[in-house]
Computed example of a mutant assay.
Amino acid sequence: MRDSWSKKIFIVLSVALTTGMSSVSVAQDGPILDLGAELEQLKAAPEETHAVTAQTVTKPLANVPPPKENKAAEIAHDKPLHWGYAGHEGPRYWGDLSPEFATCKEGKNQSPIDLRDAQAVGTQGLADLDIRYRDVPLKIENNGHTIQVNYPLGSYIKVGGKRYELLQYHFHTPSEHQKEGFNYPMEVHMVHRDGDGNLAVIGVIFQEGEENQHLNTLLNVLPKQAGKQKIYSALSLNPAHFIPVNTEFYKYSGSLTTPPCSEGVYWMVFKQPVSASAEQIQQFNDVLGENARPVNSINSRSVLKSWSEAVQQEPMYEYY
């Protein structure tokens, strides 16, 4: 089994590395192996075997009542923690819902934040951002918190030569990051992970304007109810289409914007919004509702921007 894994990994990496693409490109290769799904199936197999063994060993003897157990505690342990965006399960209370969510309340490097040009440090020394995404069959789901499109291995970004695989992209209405103190109507997050488990997220904000033809691919199959992932082999929506023409971006160290709010996330948020029509934004909002976490304090962090402001020359005056 180990040999077969290594062969598949080699196939994925060799396809990605040998494809000639520009810094922001859309590869036209066929779909690649979804190694992540295969690994999940392999992980599930030992659990199923264990369950059968446990059933055989713990079968009660005839006429002997089984020992009393705290079924409520057992059910509560197996039941996933529920959180949301309103009421007593909203962002204000995430840190109190479970010890696992404590960082949502106690963390000092939380996301999202308000991005302001005057407070960000201009620099030309930020690592280059190289985006290499491929066209793959559309895998879409409504997970109860957002509309998410899942991606197989083979699409990635490189930041300063370090590779992060694209895992998924998802949407928030309104935007989670603010610009100059204002929320935009929508934001998409592209979530990546490197081989050591470190996360890097690209954020793109949407403003109301012209229709975005690429969003129609999603809107035509938008799952209105939470449920399992659906796969459309004849459809594809490459998130490279959401990258704005002006590729200036903010960079800062933050967190996941949903529980458990883990920190150490490398954030890159593009300065320039992209457009979507009012009708398209409304269609997303009808399904998502308001699923944006409020902004958090920057605290002692520095927000960098990938551009430096031009030095203003002193105005020249002539007196008559």
Score class of each variant (00 low, 15 high):
M1A: 13
W5P: 00
I11F: 11
V12E: 06
V12N: 10
L13N: 10
V15M: 08
T19A: 06
G20K: 08
M21C: 14
V24S: 03
S25T: 13
Q28F: 06
Q28Y: 09
P31V: 06
I32K: 05
L33S: 04
D34L: 03
D34R: 04
A37W: 03
L39D: 08
Q41H: 10
P46D: 06
H50L: 13
A51H: 05
T53L: 09
P60E: 04
L61S: 09
P65N: 00
P65R: 01
P65C: 02
K68G: 07
N70T: 03
N70Q: 05
K71V: 14
A72E: 14
A72T: 15
K79S: 10
H82M: 13
W83F: 14
A86K: 13
E89A: 05
P91T: 02
P99K: 13
K108P: 08
D128M: 06
I131C: 01
V136D: 01
E141P: 02
H145P: 00
T146V: 04
Q148H: 08
N150G: 04
Y151K: 08
G154E: 00
S155M: 05
I157Y: 00
I157H: 00
K158D: 15
K158Q: 15
V159G: 03
K162S: 11
E165S: 10
L167I: 07
Q168N: 15
Y169C: 01
Y169W: 13
T173F: 01
K179C: 06
F182Y: 11
Y184N: 08
P185H: 02
V188K: 01
N198M: 12
L199K: 09
I202A: 00
G203H: 03
G203R: 01
Q213E: 14
Q213H: 14
P223L: 06
K224I: 07
Q225E: 15
K228F: 07
K228V: 08
Q229L: 13
Q229H: 06
K230T: 15
Y232T: 01
L237W: 01
L237H: 01
P239K: 00
F242Q: 02
F242W: 07
P244T: 11
L256N: 06
V265S: 04
Y266C: 08
V269W: 02
Q272E: 15
P273Q: 04
S275P: 02
Q280N: 09
Q280V: 05
G289E: 11
A292D: 00
R293A: 05
N296V: 01
R301H: 10
S302P: 00
E309V: 08
A310P: 15
V311F: 12
E314N: 12
P315M: 08
M316H: 11
Y320G: 09
Y320R: 13
